[in-house]
Amino acid sequence: MKLNLLEYKDHKAYLVGFAVLVTFIFVLVLSFVNELTKEQVKKNQELFLIRAVLESMQIPYQNDQEALTIYRGRIGVKEVRGKRIFFTNPPEDKKYAILFSGNGLWSIIQGIIGVDSQFERLTGIAFVEQNETPGLGGRIEEPWFKGQFQGEKLVNGTVAFRTGQADPGDRDKDNGSVDAITGATSTSKSLETILKKALKDLEERVKEGGL
């Protein structure tokens, strides 16, 4: 006699067995795919970081491959008291950068900020991860905004965010301030706080680490 499982479809054991089996199969496939792509995803994340480090130090590159080569040859990294500090290897002009991370409006803002050897001027800023409101806080990724940081003089060890016009932003490189983003007060305020702390962390750690 052939056993027809479907006749037991409303039986509790069938219900439980079916749910367990289906869940098992789907989750198995997912974990398999996840395992297969894990390396690639990790590599992509590394690459985001590497591109951000180079961008913050104003080191130009043509493509991802070149970015990787430059990074491996010219940039050193050291972890001091739980923070990653990046620096250019000699004989280049010494530049330092730090991976910062803090709460934005919606989620974490993570990025890199770079300074020159004397801690006198910023070299630039780049973001690794942010989920601010597109078109408002999300504009921190726009070139006019990031461009304001290049060569900006540090006053009291940080940069201030002021109310201002959008594009082209604050072009005065000696006033120690940049224009915040109109309509994105929370993002601007958070970023200002995050950067203030990051720059302090960087300076302390460069001294401590003897870099």
Binding site: L5, L6, K9, D10, Y14, L15, F18, A19, V22, T23, F26, V29, L30, V33, N34, T37, V41
Partner: peptide, 25 residues
């Protein structure tokens, strides 16, 4: 093969499966 009682749970499972797959890819 889907029992009526767990129909919606299975539906959510299957669609989560494809969405997570898409996200990973």
């Amino acid at each position: 093969w889907i029992p009526q009682k767990v129909r919606m749970i299975i539906q959510v499972l299957v669609l989560s499966f494809y969405v997570i797959l898409l996200d990973i890819l």
